[in-house]
């Protein structure tokens, strides 16, 4: 688990609006290893979603480089599966056809893989259902299956469970870990939920806001499945919370001195 799969090298991003230049990311450096789940957590507006879009190749107007297996990322591709905040399924396609998307279910290998994935995300019986008939959690699982069908080298998840209720969310987190156990898919996971980060990831990256920089990296060395109520879990949770909160008084004092 030590081969570098994804390298983010000195990536900076500046938004320009009405002549003002707002730095969003500042020389960010991060390496994600093969089979690793890395969470990115930080206050809103710290550029974590922007970072994910850059890695996906959806935003290429940046300084610095993003390398996937040593190759620079220039455009979106199926190698970088992306799970959006909302499920973004095609409303006119059934579950199985959404997973297949532009591929034909008449091809036996596509058919077989789609059936496997439906089993993996536990949607048997809903193959012919339309997105309007699905709950939020189910829709998001279809979106995950759609990405996995394309054998991505890395799965990029942008607060995928943010809109779900707490109960469904914890189920989804377990489902995601099931998928990881099965496929060892490398994942870069953006979240604003500390519990989620500690529960899922091998490492948690805490980002600073404006401009986004890495504040600390917290390795989570707990074995799976993790107990949310365990002492070690709570300790790590507090550690991250403290790292996140650390900034608030600092910022406050800066504004006071001005």
């Amino acid at each position: 688990m030590s081969t570098a799969l994804l390298e983010i090298v000195d990536v900076s991003k500046t938004f320009r609006s009405a002549g003002d230049a707002v730095p969003v990311l500042d020389r960010l450096k991060l390496t994600v290893n093969q089979g690793e789940i890395v969470s990115i957590i930080g206050p809103s507006g710290c550029g974590k979603s922007t970072l994910l879009k850059i890695v996906a190749g959806l935003d290429i107007d940046i300084e610095g480089r993003v390398l996937l297996e040593g190759e620079p990322v220039k455009k979106p591709s199926q190698e970088k599966g992306f799970i959006f905040q909302e499920h973004r399924l095609f409303p006119w396609l059934t579950v199985e056809r959404n997973i297949a998307a532009d591929l034909s279910l008449r091809k036996p290998d596509v058919r077989r893989k789609v059936d496997e994935l439906i089993k993996l995300v536990k949607l048997q019986g809903f193959e012919k259902a339309y997105p309007k008939q699905l709950s939020g959690g189910m829709s998001q699982r279809v979106a995950i299956a759609r990405a996995l069908l394309r054998n991505p080298k890395v799965l990029l998840l942008d607060e995928p469970f943010g809109a779900l209720d707490a109960f469904t969310r914890s189920h989804m987190q377990e489902a995601l870990l099931d998928i990881w156990r099965e496929n060892r898919t490398t994942m870069l996971f953006v979240t604003h939920d500390i519990d989620e980060a500690v529960f899922l990831s091998h490492r948690v990256i805490v980002l600073d806001a404006r401009p986004g920089r890495i504040k600390t990296i917290v390795p989570i060395d707990l074995p799976f499945p993790r107990k949310r109520t365990g002492a070690a879990f709570q300790e790590l949770r507090t550690l991250i919370l403290r790292a996140l909160e650390h900034e608030e008084p600092e910022n406050g004092s800066v504004s006071y001195t001005i």
């Binding site: 996906a56 959806l58 455009k75 979106p76 591709s77 199926q78 970088k80 599966g81 992306f82 959006f84 909302e86 973004r88 095609f90 006119w92 396609l93 998307a101 532009d102 759609r146 394309r150």
Partner: peptide, 27 residues
């Protein structure tokens, strides 16, 4: 427009973008 991002990530061909995204959505 969010569905166009999906089409880009899934690497839809130009024809498929028309036939499988734009046309059904505009149906």
């Amino acid at each position: 427009s969010k569905l166009f991002d999906v089409a880009r990530v899934l690497e839809f061909k130009r024809v498929n973008q028309m036939l499988r995204l734009v046309l059904p959505a505009a149906m």
